[in-house]
């Protein structure tokens, strides 16, 4: 099934994308409202939160170029030393720009 990208078609596509995204935004919360939060569920949630974070970051490092890898490693080191997010992020972005400029 295809939609022609006329004005009406584009609006329909945007609406479809919005609804699909809304389903993901609401879905997890909706399902959880039927789950009783026991200590075990609680610890699952806590572990899952860390895993999701790592699952977003790791592909960026592996699928990315040398700049991406530089950005993430510099951010990690700077964060562990400085313990301040903003300087660490700035250093990471700067090193990505630098590596890409040089390579």
């Amino acid at each position: 099934m295809t939609i022609e990208t006329t004005t009406a078609g584009v609006l329909a596509l945007i609406l479809i994308m919005t609804l699909v995204t809304l389903a993901t935004r609401f879905g997890g919360v909706f399902i959880m409202s039927y789950v009783r939060i026991s200590p075990r569920v609680e610890s699952f949630i806590n572990t899952m939160a860390s895993s999701v974070l790592i699952a977003i970051i790791v592909p960026m490092a592996f699928a990315g170029d040398a700049g991406a890898l530089a950005a993430l490693s510099v951010t990690a080191v700077a964060m562990l030393i400085l313990k301040k997010p903003l300087p660490a992020i700035a250093a990471g972005i700067l090193s990505a720009a630098l590596v890409r400029y040089m390579v």
């Binding site: 099934m1 295809t2 939609i3 022609e4 990208t5 078609g9 596509l13 479809i16 994308m17 699909v20 995204t21 389903a23 993901t24 935004r25 609401f26 879905g27 997890g28 919360v29 399902i31 959880m32 409202s33 789950v35 939060i37 949630i45 806590n46 899952m48 939160a49 999701v52 699952a55 977003i56």
Partner: peptide
């Protein structure tokens, strides 16, 4: 022309992390 189902699948796949994120804030 845009194929609807592939767009829906891709958008859902990329945004499916919201499911877990929302659940973790529950």
């Amino acid at each position: 022309e845009v194929s609807v189902i592939p767009v829906m699948v891709v958008v859902f796949a990329i945004n499916s992390r919201h499911l877990l994120m929302g659940a973790s804030l529950y």
